[in-house]
């Protein structure tokens, strides 16, 4: 499995902009807009791009895709410290893989992380490679763990995979028929 797939790194990750949007105004205070509608209305007048002030955070992320070379970006998940999960029983369920939405990262395999973490399956981010600090790898999943995580992602986002399943089944049948 070639890096950065399945690896954890520090990265500069944005929070998704949400209303009220704080629009940068050159030389002045940011302008608050309470929803998407005024911005969409502005776009209808030919003005569709603005600078939204959004918070970014330096944080460890788990890269869950290969780099798309055409765009130099990856998909990644945010992490959550296990100590922040208050209930010890919930923590144990996560360690045992019984919470499908929180994927436990074993401290042995992720020894670059200062504390025990889980990847949040529902927190998918698209990150340019330029926002990932590749100086140090914090840990890595093995192939099987990545496979399980991808399955959970497909289930969490309810991705339709039936045509892929059909294609794969056809390929397997063709292979089985070959002498």
């Amino acid at each position: 499995m070639d890096a950065p797939l399945g690896r954890c790194y520090w990265a500069v990750a944005p929070f998704s902009p949400k209303p009220p949007f704080r629009l940068y105004a050159r030389g002045g205070e940011p302008r608050e807009v309470n929803g998407p509608e005024p911005i969409v209305d502005a776009a209808r007048q030919g003005m569709s791009e603005f600078v939204v002030l959004t918070t970014v955070k330096a944080r460890p992320v788990l890269v869950i895709s290969s780099v798309l070379p055409e765009f130099d970006e990856v998909l990644a998940l945010r992490l959550h410290r296990l100590e922040k999960v208050g209930d010890p029983e919930d923590q144990e369920r996560i360690r045992q893989g019984q919470d499908p939405a929180l994927f436990w990262l074993s401290p042995q395999a992720f020894d670059g992380l200062p504390v025990e973490n889980a990847a949040i399956v529902s927190s998918m981010l698209r990150l340019p490679m330029g926002s990932i600090d590749r100086r140090r790898e914090l840990g890595a999943l093995n192939e099987n763990e990545l496979r399980v995580l991808h399955e959970r992602l497909a289930r969490a986002y309810r991705l339709r995979l039936d045509m892929l399943v059909l294609e794969q089944a056809q390929r397997l049948l063709e292979r089985a028929r070959q002498p």
Partner: peptide, 27 residues
């Protein structure tokens, strides 16, 4: 085929919902 390929959606428990919200909220 659709039935065979259908995936059970994940049930988001309280811990997962809290984790998602906590990490999606700026400090």
């Amino acid at each position: 085929l659709q039935d065979a390929a259908a995936t059970d959606p994940i049930a988001f428990g309280d811990a997962a919902i809290a984790a998602h919200r906590a990490e999606e909220t700026p400090g």
